[in-house]
Each structure stands twice: as structure tokens, then as C-alpha cells.
Design a protein around this nucleic acid. Sequence first.
DNA 1: GTCTATAGTATGATAGAC
DNA 2: GTCTATCATACTATAGAC
Lengths: 194, 194
Amino acid sequence: MSLPENAPASKRAIWHAAQRLFTENGFARTSVREIATEAAIDPALVIRHFGSKEQLFMETMDVDIGAAAFDGPIETLGERFIAFVLDADADIRGIYLALLRASDSTGIWTHLRAAHEEGFVRPFRTRIASSVGDPADPAPADSADADTRARLAAAVVGGLLYSLWVVRDEGLAHLERETLVRRYGALLQAAITG
Amino acid sequence: MSLPENAPASKRAIWHAAQRLFTENGFARTSVREIATEAAIDPALVIRHFGSKEQLFMETMDVDIGAAAFDGPIETLGERFIAFVLDADADIRGIYLALLRASDSTGIWTHLRAAHEEGFVRPFRTRIASSVGDPADPAPADSADADTRARLAAAVVGGLLYSLWVVRDEGLAHLERETLVRRYGALLQAAITG
DNA sequence: GTCTATAGTATGATAGAC
DNA sequence: GTCTATCATACTATAGAC
């Protein structure tokens, strides 16, 4: 997503191969040699183009939530956002897991933290703050409270991703989709509304 | 915690060294040699006593939540459980992070899943089911609903651990403890109560 | 820009003497 | 039970020819 258009063909091949392998097998289980084979180029080129394996990882593991997920009336944002996350599964899951499992490296942890902050906390906060005084909001928030609500909401969302993707709780995964959206959406809504 | 009393001294030394290093540095960043050095024994003994590094990891990374955390009136369990988790930080955090980050290996993932099921889901379900018909419970649950509530609650708890320990959201961590207990406790309570 | 060759280091696990 | 010695392998990264 963040690869320049005018990059040489070999660099782009590396980028795509890396993105696929990292999301599929994670950071530790993906070797530079494997990426090179997949991209049909020489292993030395991988380092030459990206500096290090970790650098390549961070350039390819960039996730974009998209502001559209936060649109619409705030009193039903909870359900809509859960539905959005479940739909986005295929796009986000691999990147999320790879970042999570490699988050002992401080470089990668910083990356994960930024993704959480910019992908969840900030948009939630913006959306919540913009609804201050909204008649639908039962407890108008000052700016500190908007921040707190946003972080609580982000944590709740993280909990669902954790249960579904890391732990793979089958009891949750096998719930009817509509039930999960409604019930977990209500919990998220409670965090948003305060 | 699960090491037999009558185990030889060298085996127990390995066990303690491994537990410390794994919780501190994780699975990947801890080598068999390092464990041996810390335990002041020969590296070969580590494998001889425990079969493999992964086996040793799973035997030392056993977490015990303890049933006491689920005692007391169910209508205030949310707050009490969040307070309990925050207090238990030092004991659980390292093990939780190590398990999480090594959860790509299927053996370790199975272990994490079992810990989640037995440490969170099952006790929540038992506690919720035993309160059916309780006048304090506004919506008495059948057994399927008790299971669903327990899994939603476990996910919400996981979200807090995720935000505090993996992402290290400072905005959450720097909230006054009592505020966090009250507000996140209310969210957990909503999951429990349904 | 691209490749060959390899340096340099670390790993988990084993065989076999004592 | 314990240790020495080592196998067999994997890895990232680099130096230098073309």
C-alpha cells in the first residue's frame, strides 16, 4: 500500500512476496530466502532494497482501517463497527496476527502501537468528540472523557479480535453473525456512549 | 507450579530458570543454552529432562487464575474482576505475553486456548449459570446463553489485557486505577449480565 | 542493478564417555 | 544423572565480481 509507483520491478516483487508470506506465516517463520524465492530474485536484493528484514516487515505490514467505518449515527456505531471488523477479516487478520506475535521487537511494537492509536483510538475519539451536545448522546463528553471513551472502545474491539483470531474461541466464532454483531456491538456501544 | 516435589535438584533448577527467562524475554528470545547457564547446569540436561524446548515452555507457562476471583455477588463481579486482574499483573503478565507471542506454534496455541477456556470462559459460565433465577439478574439465562455471556465476558477481559500489556496504551494505563476499575468494570458487567 | 559466494553466528538436539 | 563434544542446520547480512 505504501510502495512507490516508480519502484523497480524487483523491489515491487519483493514487496508483494513479503506481504503474502508475512501475513500467512508471520515474521519469525518467514525467511529472507523464502521471500526471494517467491519473488524470483536473489536473497541479497531483499536486504539491498529494504535495509533489513524488519524494515521490510514494517513497510509491508501497514494496515489501513479507513475513515468510512466510523461514519453514520453515533448511537449505532457499536454494531456497525463490529460488522465492519468481521467483514474486514480477510484483509486485516494476517497483518494483525503478524504484528502481535512479533511485538517483542521494540521496532515492531512501536508500529503496532501506532496502528492501534491511529486506526482505532484516534478515529473513535474524533467521532465521539464531534457528537458532544448531540441530543442522541445521553452524557455529553468533555475532551478528556472523549479520549477515555475512545481508549475503552478500542480495548473492547481488541478483545474481539483477540478472542476470534488469537485464541480462536469457537463458541464465539460459531455464533450466528447477526447475534455476535448485536451483542458485542452493544458492549462496544456502551464503551462509546460512556 | 506443576513441578513434582521429588524431581531432582537439577530439574527444578532448570524449571525455575526457564520460568524466569521465558516470562521475561519470551520463547523465541530465550535459548536452551541461556536457561542452562542460569540454572548452572549443562545444556544437554535441559533437553534430557524436558524432551524439548517447547515442552519445557508449556510446563512452565501454566497460569492459574484461581476460583476466588469469581466469588461474591454477581451484580458487581465486573468491577471486582477487573480489580483482580490489575492486581495480578506481575504474576500473569509475563506468561500471558509469552504465550501470546509464541502462539503460532500449534502446540503453544492449544495451550493458550486451554488457558483462556479454563481460566476465563469456564469459571464465568459456571458463575453465570449458578445465578439463574437470581433476583439480581435482570435476564435469567438458559445454559446456551450463559455460555455466550461467558465468552463475551472473556473477550472483554482479553481486550483490557491486550490494550494494557501488548499495545501498552498509556492513556489507559495512566487513568486513575479506580476510574479504570469502575468504567471497564461496567463494560465487563454488561457482558456478564447480558 | 544484479548475482555468486560466503562470512559469521546462533540454534536445538544427540551420542557416548564417565 | 551428568558432562564433553559435536552434529546438522538455519539464519541475516555483506563483500565484491559483473
